[in-house]
Design a protein around this nucleic acid. Structure first.
Lengths: 238, 238
DNA sequence: CAGTGGTCTAGACCACACT
DNA sequence: GTGTGGTCTAGACCACTGT
């Protein structure tokens, strides 16, 4: 019961045992009672760790049968909310941004609705082009409340992962994100920035980040589809 | 403790109270102890129901503060795994399929790897064009094991929602799905089937459905991006 | 400080899958 | 029947937030 929860310890331990082949694909994990004993925790804690592995797509749990290993590859799936930078880094790319531009802006009708504020509310918009291994992969616009990030324009050169930057410089974190994923054809400007032909398919993500009950960041990201994909693991349902 | 779990009862009750405005946007829900008393259940059960509402994007939970209502709109988000048909129906479209074609096929290298079976394993492929309000929205290919769906070709006219069909005709259900979402430009054939220009952006979804630890269905779906989007709600993380 | 959610325990009984 | 995960309880203490 130290700083990190017990279920995190159990989760990491099991993830490692799956990664190193101690539990192989198609094999059953020890049952819940055995896991309780192995790690000296209660069933609640075991079940929390197991459900995290399910979210990772690493195991499958079936009542009456047991828990089987599906894969030994740690996947960078989007059930957790991660920045584009972090996702690309985990895939082994050398990640960077270029053409960072920070400007003040007043909320138009679209932004006012998204943030649920008055028209004209003072916002800051951060434009960036994401690079992986030297070539563009995505263009992003992030909108923030001006009052939340005083003096941001002067610090723009320090922005690589925006989420990390906001946390370190301003102590801003988010507890919930809602991603809306669709696609579009690149227009002329987007194509030039990304180095592709106009009309090429782009993945679009609109991300609303909540601090508490308030939308405190809105991100519009367009990603070259041939260089990126999202993985979502779901269970139950029809 | 009847057929439906208690947390489902609590979840639905709270969802209704949010939908009808008893708990309004920005307001706090009763705390966990109060909810225990209101519904006569333990804290574990309350927390399970609350976590389901978080997954729906309806509420936000903050330690030390409480549980606040974010929205009163029931969203059709993709944290639960649903068929395209079900999602479109919930949006109020009049849904159908056309050009259903069922054929036997032998696993090629790609399919053999996806299903983790030998090259040449006997599969069935179902081709369909999804229609909403009379116009095409998506084309889908679903691959199944031939042995799992004997005589399927003769029943093809009864397929509307494939998932419902498989459940009712063959008792097939899935306990896990892994969706990989990206985008592409429509080629000539796809454009003709969907009634769009070649090159138009399409959302692509590769869905692996698991029965236990085995991939038992693979779906390749291409959706007109301007008519569809995915919503994913996530919490925590960086 | 008081009040909130976050974590955890020990134990119980139910529902499902296989033999 | 036996063994698995699924649900649930009652209670405890920790960590964070605001006053």
């Amino acid at each position: 019961m130290s700083r990190t929860p017990e279920y995190t310890r159990v989760y990491n331990a099991l993830k490692n045992l799956i990664a190193d082949g101690t539990y192989k694909r198609g094999e059953l994990l020890p049952n819940e009672t055995q896991l309780e004993e192995m790690y000296g925790v209660s069933r609640t804690t075991v079940r929390k760790a197991v459900s995290m592995l399910v979210q990772d797509g690493l195991i499958s749990v079936r009542q009456g049968i047991g828990t089987t290993v599906l894969s030994n590859k740690t996947k960078q799936n989007l059930n957790y909310f991660n920045s584009l930078t972090a996702t690309l880094e985990r895939r082994g790319y050398d990640v960077g941004v270029k053409d960072v531009y920070v400007t003040d802006i007043a909320a138009d009708a679209f932004l006012a609705e998204q943030f649920d504020v008055e028209l004209g509310t003072k916002l800051v918009c951060v434009y960036r082009t994401h690079i992986a291994d030297g070539v563009p992969v995505a263009i992003a616009r992030n909108y923030l409340f001006k009052e939340d990030v005083p003096g941001m324009a002067e610090k723009k050169d320090r922005i690589l992962s925006l989420y990390r930057f906001l946390k370190e410089e301003y102590g801003i974190t988010y507890n919930l994100a809602e991603d809306t994923i669709s696609a579009c054809n690149a227009n002329y400007e987007e194509a030039m920035l990304l180095g592709v032909e106009p009309g090429e398919a782009l993945l679009t993500v609109v991300r609303k980040c909540y601090t508490g009950d308030k939308v405190s960041q809105l991100a519009l990201v367009k990603i070259i589809a041939s260089r990126h994909e999202f993985v979502v693991v779901t269970k139950d349902g029809l």
